[in-house]
Amino acid sequence: MAAKKPYTLIGLVVSVVFLLYLFLGDSNAPHKLAGRRPSKEDGLIKSYKLNNLQATSRSFNNKEQVLVLTPMSKFYPEYWENLLGLSYPRNLVELGFILPSNSLGDQALKQLDAAVKKVQTGPANQRFAKVTILRQDTASLESQSEKDRHALSAQKKRRSQMSLARNSLFLTTIGPATSWILWLDADVVETPVTLIQDLAKHDKDIIVANCYQRYVDPKKGASIRPYDFNSWQDSEKALEIAAEMGDDEIIVEGYQEIATYRALMAYMYDAKNDPHLEVPLDGVGGTALLVKAAVHRDGAMFPPFPFYHLIETEGFAKMAKRLGYQPWGLPNYLVYHYNE
């Protein structure tokens, strides 16, 4: 028995060395898994050269990947049908949604989930590359009526909540191959089918369409009117108002109580003019907003707090400008908001 002890000890040492070799041996090789042959996925390391990632005016031809992001509190079938009607190749499009954790969000989730499953289990060439649905874990307004959403008294709280939702959404869904992010509101129900290509061909870091609303005028019949007033060019008056504000106060546009005298893109629309006329902006709305993914990667987000007395999408525009990116708008290129 005594003669066997050295061999037992040697065997034990050899076994330990062998195990250490398996797990610590070649640091440049994939880790080996004992008990089976390694698959292609074992130890796979993917490298992405983001400096080579393109976001160009020829997004369609260059097969650039687009991430369409939508905060959603109510499911509008018209929104979904319009989204499905967009002509950008679906294999290059990923979708992302975030819904509030309340009764309205529960109802919207059921409808969205059914709509998504119908498409994603249908013909392979009609499916989107990826669909992500998130639930918002922060508070949100229970009432989503147009009147309650747009009351001046609700703006700071509402838009702070929207900022948190937007930030959660893009930080969760943006991928290393994402070239563009299209922010498309859930109540935008009508756009040109070439919306993504039309906005991308301007090759701007940030570009926003002009959001209007269809309605029936008692005297004129079918008509349209401005809806989104968050896209604007700054004014001296607005800067003076901001200079006199407290740190936690914000300026919101489109309210008589705060006369800023900014140049609002909503009122720049000219039906006879070029739909691709570009104007520089200082604030943007988020109803149909196309952003190069590099802008978000560089740190531009939607501030849920007063940032130079701006918040949410308007605060995003200010932050982007501080990072060296110029927002642009298309006053004659219209998308349409649902009319409640």
Rank of each mutant, 00 (worst) to 15 (best):
A2F: 00
A3I: 00
K5S: 06
V13R: 08
V16G: 14
V17L: 14
L20M: 13
L24H: 00
N28V: 06
P30N: 05
P30M: 06
H31K: 13
G35S: 14
R36I: 11
S39Y: 15
D42F: 12
G43E: 10
K63S: 12
V66A: 04
V66G: 01
V66W: 02
L69A: 07
K74M: 12
Y76V: 04
Y76C: 03
P77H: 08
N91R: 11
V93N: 00
E94H: 05
G96Q: 01
L99W: 00
D106S: 15
D106L: 11
A108C: 10
V131F: 05
T132I: 14
I133Q: 08
Q144Y: 05
H150T: 12
S153C: 02
K157W: 12
S160Y: 08
L164H: 08
R166S: 12
R166E: 15
R166P: 12
I174L: 13
P176E: 13
S179N: 02
V188N: 01
T191F: 08
K201M: 08
I207P: 01
I207E: 01
V208M: 04
C211W: 02
V216S: 10
G221H: 07
G221V: 08
A222H: 14
S223H: 11
Q233M: 10
K237H: 13
K237N: 08
A242S: 13
A243N: 14
G246Y: 10
E249T: 06
I250H: 03
E253P: 00
G254T: 00
E257V: 03
R262A: 05
A263D: 12
L264P: 00
A266V: 03
M268K: 05
Y269C: 03
Y269Q: 02
L281I: 02
G283K: 02
G286F: 00
V295L: 09
D298Q: 10
M301N: 12
E312D: 15
A317P: 05
G329V: 00
